Simulated assay, not measured.
Amino acid sequence: MALLGGGFSTEDDGLLDGWVLGHVRGDRPKVCFVPTASGDAPAYVERFLDAFRARDCEPSVLSLFRRELDDAALRAFLLAQDVVYVGGGNTANLLAVWRVHGVDRLVREAYEGGTLLCGISAGANCWAEGSHTDSFGPLTYLRDGLGLLPGSVCPHYDSEPGRRDSYRAAVAGGRLPAGWAVDDGVGALFTDGRLVEVVTRAPEARLYRVRAGAGGGAEERAVGGRALRA
């Protein structure tokens, strides 16, 4: 499982996407983009296809707002993927739509079968037990994730006003469990819930471990990462 602070939707160098594909075995991996959180925005889908058609892989898109697959075909399709790449947008809406269509159960089954799950923003939030989100307008917390990654996730930690203070307050107050705060430009890889690798495409970008402190506040620890090169 990879939490991304970037990728094709925000960057043109392709470093984080290349890093993701580097963790997939075999030739021409199947990479499925799931744009549910954006309401299957056509421009977002085209940006993914433009980026991944240029790579040595087989890109595809799973649309749930114009679903064409029955339950059996949907399961077969998702379990055949090497990478499930989830886009950004509204985390709460993503989780609700996935549960209606049974995708929450299918991505868990795919993960247990060896599929690499990854995503940016809402596509990073969804895997954890809880997350820091603007799904309801103002920044707040959501304790309704899939729970494939223990703890919580906060995206855009360094780039969106109020993220850092709001997430730290949610963790310090017990509204979210301890978790991972992701700067833009970071990639964090987890295996069985354990952090195994951190990479960055920007020198100042960091991953942070955030937990409640003894004095009622939050403790934040930066985790060093390997710099990606073009």
Rank of each mutant, 00 (worst) to 15 (best):
Y141Q: 13
N125P: 06
A96C: 03
V45I: 15
L149E: 09
I120R: 00
A73G: 04
A41S: 14
R67V: 01
S38V: 13
F65D: 12
H132Q: 05
W98E: 02
A110H: 05
G151S: 11
R55I: 04
V83Q: 08
A43I: 03
A128Q: 06
G88P: 05
H132K: 00
L139C: 07
F136C: 11
L106K: 06
L49D: 05
T115H: 02
Y141R: 12
G137H: 10
V61R: 06
C32K: 02
F77Q: 11
T36D: 13
L94N: 09
L148Y: 08
A51Q: 07
V97A: 09
P150T: 12
A72M: 02
L117R: 02
L78T: 01
V84I: 15
E112A: 13
V45Y: 07
R67G: 00
E68D: 11
D50M: 03
A92Q: 10
A72N: 03
G130N: 03
K30L: 14
G102C: 00
V103L: 15
P150M: 12
D104A: 07
A122P: 07
S131D: 08
R105G: 13
N90V: 04
K30C: 13
A128F: 10
A124I: 08
F33V: 02
C126V: 15
L116G: 01
A92K: 06
V86R: 00
A122Y: 08
D134M: 13
F77Y: 12
G89F: 09
L146C: 13
R66K: 01
W127E: 07
L49C: 04
H101M: 07
R66N: 10
A96P: 00
L146D: 13
L148R: 01
R108K: 06
Y44L: 12
G114V: 11
D70Y: 05
V31Q: 09
V107I: 15
D82K: 01
